[in-house]
């Protein structure tokens, strides 16, 4: 019984952290690659071209 409860909670606690990490990662990629604010665009300009993000 105890083992079962532990297992269930371990599985449950695996999905949320992964989900947070995916959202954080996609947020970072969006910030670095897509946001068109001019300071960000200028700073990331060469990287966006070289990494294949749509630029300009």
């Amino acid at each position: 019984m105890t083992t079962k409860t532990l297992k269930a909670s371990a599985t449950g606690s695996a999905i949320l952290p992964a989900l947070f990490a995916v959202i954080l990662g996609l947020g970072i990629v969006t910030l670095a690659g897509h946001v068109q604010a001019s300071a960000l665009h200028d700073a990331a300009h060469d990287v966006r071209h070289a990494t294949g993000f749509p630029c300009h």
Partner: peptide, 22 residues
């Protein structure tokens, strides 16, 4: 460019490692 490349690849890595854990 160095900072943003590292930043970008860290973003990729977060997505990939999260999926690896799944």
């Amino acid at each position: 460019s160095v900072v943003f490349t590292m930043f970008t690849y860290t973003g990729y890595a977060l997505v990939m490692v999260a999926l690896m854990s799944m």
